[in-house]
Amino acid sequence: MTALLRRELRLALRHGSDTLAALLFFVLAASLFPLAIGPAPETLGRVAPGVVFVCALLAAILPLDRLFGAELEDGSLDQLLLFGLPAPLLALVKAGGHWLVTGLPLLLAAAPTAVMLRIAPEALPALLAALLPATLLLSLLGTVGAAVVLGARRGGVLLPLLVLPLATPVLIFGVGAAEAAASGLSPRPHLLFLAAMLAAALPLCPLAAGAALRSAAE
């Protein structure tokens, strides 16, 4: 498993520009909002948590269609499945790799981006605390989506259509945490909800993704 994870990371390093593209997309998309709705600090600060979350959501989906795509094409997916590792574990490793390569950099870039968007200072810690489970959840859900569309004709277009509706609860509670903190309430219930969703998704998503992988490799 560690060998697999190391392989994932090495592949991501070798294709550095692909990896950075998601991050760049996130920063660029977020910086479009001040230009679109005007730079007034009070309006910008109000929408900042939502903008950061939506951009992170879209950026996390961006590299998903290559998550298994290249390996299906060159046949290494069959090799990986023959390894003896159960398919759900393989999916879990893939989700972990996606988080380390996309989710973690997004989390790091979120703080400066949110500050640039003039977020309320008391909302920033809550936003980052919500982004940690949220990016993990997005990696897990995204792995399911990527595994399910494997081999489909317009997989890249289909993928956001499938993942975005499933990701709406993540968005709602994530932004809810930041909004609560901004208005002086405790973000704790929202964060607990996110943690509960993560606890449910951690075993279930790899199972679903594993089943999809096995049927794709048949």
Partner: peptide, 19 residues
């Protein structure tokens, strides 16, 4: 979206259960 209807049914089933 799949050329093989069997594959489409399997993928759709997994998605339906997740949803």
């Amino acid at each position: 979206a799949f050329d093989d209807p069997q594959r489409g049914a399997r993928a759709g089933a997994i998605l339906a259960l997740v949803g």
